[in-house]
Nucleic acid binder design. Sequence first.
DNA 1: CAGATTGGGTTCCAAAAAAGAACTTGTCAA
DNA 2: TTGACAAGTTCTTTTTTGGAACCCAATCTG
Lengths: 166, 166
Amino acid sequence: MRWEELDREPCSLARTLSVVGDRWTLLVLRECFLRIRRFEEFEQRLGIARHVLADRLKKLTEAGVLEKTPYQERPRREEYRLTEKGLALYPALLALLDWGDKFMSGKEGPPLLRRHKTCGHVVHAVTTCSECGEALDARAMTAEPGPGAPAGFVLPQRPSNKAVDK
Amino acid sequence: MRWEELDREPCSLARTLSVVGDRWTLLVLRECFLRIRRFEEFEQRLGIARHVLADRLKKLTEAGVLEKTPYQERPRREEYRLTEKGLALYPALLALLDWGDKFMSGKEGPPLLRRHKTCGHVVHAVTTCSECGEALDARAMTAEPGPGAPAGFVLPQRPSNKAVDK
DNA sequence: CAGATTGGGTTCCAAAAAAGAACTTGTCAA
DNA sequence: TTGACAAGTTCTTTTTTGGAACCCAATCTG
């Protein structure tokens, strides 16, 4: 499978990755959530090659995740801001961040903490069920074809092997 | 910045991406959550080049996200299974998936639905605050240096520009 | 018992993407 | 008239992928 075909896959993860799934895009978005908005700032903070940055900003803008708005005319200068669609990526970034805090921080602990303005506490994310409100975990979930599934779509069956299934 | 330096960045997102942030790894993990466990199955379902797959499985195993266990001797055959550390990535995958369901599904709707065994409903994830339980959104959060922050670490200040801030 | 098959890889070459540095463009200020 | 600034673009070199072929040990198959 080639990268440009990813957005046509019948899978919402693949489609999301067709927008944010390359080496740099999520780091660019991290900067956006820290309110970085200008080309030079992204470049300096990330140490990304300028043409790669230009390409990513263009693709994110075309995807409707960022929007380019002028902050001055003469000479015209533009900045990149998150749209609602971009802001909606926050839970995904937060989930990746929390995993890093938990599994990739050394004994020093996480480099950054996040405070919830609403309640005033330092917090992390808890992924809960939209229907019953309980915390979700992988073992309590099953997948099934949805309305957008292609005809004849079959989910893999749980393998009937005799593996060491302690 | 080169890719191998990513795991030393003082940022949990960068560190997480040093494990799952390349073109293929999250798709491999999607298969793992669908209980795909064998080399040939990954290859056939993903259409990934074999040596890239071998490399990704090795790296995920070294990172402690997957573990390689024999499912038969003579001839010895092994399969890859998610560890607890790997299962802990579920909220992140789910958040990316939900974003795709919401923004990347056409009018047909999402290709896959997820059912919560505990409550029996088709559900999506709601990211909530670990302290107050309210749903989290980007605008209600602020970042601050944590215990693992490098000395002299400064967060970017909100830019004091005169941008069109409707 | 020779030959094909299966699972899980490795090797090789060509194509695509990223790194790094230099060059461009429009505008203003000294 | 020269320099600086912001935001790119162009060029060359290195890394990563994609695609196909090959390897190998241990069964099946005839």
